[in-house]
Design a protein around this nucleic acid. Structure first.
Length: 216
DNA sequence: GCGACAG
DNA sequence: ATCTTGTCGC
């Protein structure tokens, strides 16, 4: 487990925090993982959406075993293998990865989104539903409002309101994307729901894959 | 020492 | 993450 931390400290030097990343990507990928109640089986899914129509144009899944125990801060080691396997099965090359979890908003500034970005060398961002690190003040109630997510004296992300009057999401940079662009991409992916269409479609796909794998 | 703690 | 019912609102 100490080795995992060492790996993060080593790889974090490869993170590109400047970006700014694609301003108008043609395709964006969503990644998510579902677990069986038994906890010994999981399904990872990647869906690639056409950013203009938000329709799924490519998809891939990977069923396997959790590669690591769930430890906050080392979360990537648990899902990364399966997610990479799913990414390898994609027929297309997405221009941006939208991860279900954090990027820089991590105790060592190397969350899942950073890890996935560095390993694939693809632009990536993290969109978390709940915080891992940082303090913030609630953003205004209107969609698009945000407030900085601060950890110590660093701004590690933004608390973004994707739907008026609904609980905000936590956006942070993963790799090769600027924070401004990360927020712009998330808003483009949330025309009607709190979570990006990318994570919603990936979530449905991995749940279906898990159900299929379980009943066999 | 006692909590908090992505999914 | 997963286990869970009804309910309020667009």
């Amino acid at each position: 487990m100490a080795e995992a931390v060492a790996v993060q400290e080593e790889l974090r030097s490869r993170v590109d925090l400047v970006g700014p990343g694609p301003s108008a990507p043609a395709t964006v990928a969503g990644l998510d993982v579902a677990y069986a109640e038994s906890g010994d089986l999981l399904a990872a899914a990647v869906t690639v959406l056409d950013t203009r129509t938000l329709e799924v144009v490519d998809r891939a899944v990977s069923v396997g075993r959790p590669a690591f125990a769930y430890v906050p801060g080392l979360f990537a080691f648990r899902e990364l293998p399966a997610l990479l396997a799913a990414l390898d099965r994609l027929a297309t090359r997405p221009e941006l990865l939208v991860c279900d979890g954090h990027g820089l908003a991590h105790p060592r500034r190397f969350g899942l989104a950073c890890h996935l970005g560095v390993v694939t060398d693809l632009p990536s961002i993290g969109v978390g539903k709940t915080p891992l690190v940082g303090v913030w003040t609630p953003p205004q109630a209107e969609r698009g409002a945000w407030s900085p997510l601060r950890d110590g004296d660093e701004v590690v992300g933004r608390v973004l309101r994707t739907r008026s009057g609904v609980k905000p999401v936590f956006v942070s940079v993963g790799h090769r994307v600027s924070l401004d662009n990360a927020v712009a991409q998330v808003l483009a992916l949330t025309p009607r729901h709190r979570l990006p269409e990318t994570t919603r479609t990936a979530d449905r796909l991995c749940r279906d894959a898990l159900a299929t794998a379980t009943r066999r």
